[in-house]
Design a protein around this nucleic acid. Structure first.
Lengths: 345, 345
DNA sequence: TGGCATAAAGTGAACGTTAACGCAACGATC
DNA sequence: GATCGTTGCGTTAACGTTCACTTTATGCCA
């Protein structure tokens, strides 16, 4: 891939040398005016500054990163960008890192393990100061690369298992357990788990395990699974709900793997004349912004996304400054709404 | 900010030289094995490859970018990450760029103009191959920097005005006009515009202009504005709806600046006993994934987000390869649902 | 006035890679 | 058998910074 350069617009982007020439000092002095301003005479510093303004100088961090011992990039690897799943984590994380002059380099695996390896490699090739990545279950090669990189690795979103270095998240098995327990407490007995569960989405699988465990603990029959390997959407929820109710009409509660899928499930139940929460309970995961606005409003689990973003940023800064690795478990909350409110409290 | 390095784990991250030593060839040959594989004898190439595997070699693109004439970074500047507003654009864009081995560097201005300048500067300091940025209205200094950079600049989301280089988007004034016209066609007469409109959100302002124009063209009274400078959310919608109806009970249609705000508006109207769409029409912008799932389902404008992401990626590739700047107008669609369906068709 | 700390600026060598160029070895061509 | 293009690899010089040193100017005190 070539630079755009048609020859005539061949750029002479200004460098430290351009500034140095113009002001009549050495390159080093110009560099110092940026990195260690106090070591250069104020009057000179000002002249350098105006020269930079006039020439629209933008430092070349490729060179800076190569030469210096620091890097200002933080690699962020997520598994999805759709439906607010991780967007607000990125949002918070990026803002917090910005205050420390750290730049986010983003990669999205779309729940594809091969992609994950490729993207991690690509991100490491920029010699980031740290990497934040969704999940604690990665292909062995990814783990090997991350560990060999020698930089802080922050695993986000999940803490239920072995971590590489530092983690900020929560235990998804417990979430699943709580989801099922809530339904059981409300008097539901025949539970199903429904939604998009990608092979590579270990968190969803852990939640399913939790759901199964709670059902087993309560002596209930096995959980009915109605899952599929593709991205979640309301349409998918509609489809899966139809299939589920056809094959298992006895189901009286559905744990949806995401709010967005649950929206479709609710539509379908309404269309089929099944009353929610009376005939059937619906509970989801994610706390989509619309979860409280659908009818009936949706009981769901709210992960502390902003908090994960913020704590991850803090962990990155701390680790870069030499703090020890740590694992931080963050809150989540089962937000009870109408879709499971069978009994008055 | 120091590198993490406690001294003992002082890393010797492998370089081309490490590989070269190990295999017993020159550095350049190793480099060629990566960049121009055909120029290296297959047997030797294989030995180099296995050496890289064994040492977990990851190329240093800081060095590569500095030395070579190409860059593999594409800077992406968005104004928001919440509520799927631009997440799916990023998602599509990133996937498409990945196929060309281009890496996304993300920046989020959060609708803050100062932040925008800072972030653009920061991104340019990585000498990206191109920059994709939301909107066509930027502070003068931002425009100056982007133009001076000499790289392709793709402005996304908006095309209604002067562009720097290349643009992929649509005309928001026209959207606003269509929104109001749809309400007028349905028999609504007293229109309001409600939602979060940041100073720096020129697109929202353009849509408002369109709404006003349509109302004026139809000889209707002035649009009532109920806007505020803060992020949109259902709660905000609830609050603004209450304020609006108190001060202007005559309103019979509300154009919401985002679906998420409209969700709150719908809740409030239901609570206040105002029937939608009979007493009052509600229409929004954004096509949130839940728009079809709330009750009544929400009439809204669906921008072709994936298409913008895809076309932006294509425009970037084309421009990098020397194509001329261009402006591409993409579709959007007013999706009619229950919240405005006053008349049977 | 000499000596010496301190501040301010310059020098030169990295950093890891790519790219232009050079050169040997080899087979094909006339 | 001299010429020539090709293949396969090595040499060397950038790329724009930063950093450890070195040098020069400045001020202060004895």
């Amino acid at each position: 891939m070539n630079m755009s350069g048609s020859e005539k617009e061949a750029k002479n982007v200004p460098t430290l040398a351009s500034i140095a020439d113009r002001v009549g000092v050495s390159i080093n002095t110009v560099s110092r005016a940026l990195r260690a301003p106090t070591t250069v005479r104020p009057e000179l510093r000002q002249r350098i500054k105006t020269a930079m303004e006039e020439l629209n100088y933008v430092p070349n961090r490729l060179a800076g990163g190569l030469s210096g011992t620091r890097s200002d990039i933080v690699g962020v690897v997520v598994t999805s960008l759709y439906y607010s799943e991780f967007a607000s984590i990125i949002d918070t994380l990026q803002s917090a890192l910005l205050e420390h002059d750290l730049q986010v380099m983003l990669a999205n695996t779309r729940y594809n393990a091969d992609q994950e390896l490729r993207l991690v490699r690509s991100i490491l090739s920029w010699r980031p100061a740290a990497v934040a990545i969704i999940g604690i279950d990665h292909p062995p090669k990814v783990v090997e690369l991350l560990m060999a990189s020698g930089i802080p690795i922050i695993e986000m979103w999940d803490t239920g298992g072995e971590v590489i270095d530092t983690a900020v998240g929560f235990d998804h098995v417990k979430v699943g357990f709580a989801q099922a327990q809530h339904l059981i407490d409300q008097g539901y007995r025949r539970l199903a788990f429904l939604g998009s569960v990608r092979d590579n989405d270990k968190r969803a699988q852990k939640r399913l395990i939790g759901v199964q465990a709670a059902a087993a603990a309560a002596g209930l029959p096995d959980i009915v699974r109605q899952t599929i390997q593709q991205g979640g959407s309301p349409e998918l929820g509609e489809r899966l709900a139809v299939e589920l109710l056809e094959s298992h009409p006895e189901i009286d509660a559905i744990v949806c793997n995401s709010d967005v899928v649950a929206f479709g499930v609710l539509s379908t139940l309404k269309r089929l004349g099944r009353r929610v929460p009376e005939d059937i309970g619906v509970l989801a995961f994610g706390d989509n912004e619309a979860a409280g606005c659908v009818t009936p409003s949706l009981t769901t689990v709210r992960p502390a996304r902003e908090r994960i973003g913020k704590l991850t940023a803090e962990a990155i800064i701390a680790r870069i400054n030499g703090a020890e690795p740590s694992t931080t478990v963050v809150d989540w909350k089962l937000v009870e709404r109408q879709s499971t409110r069978r009994r008055e409290p």
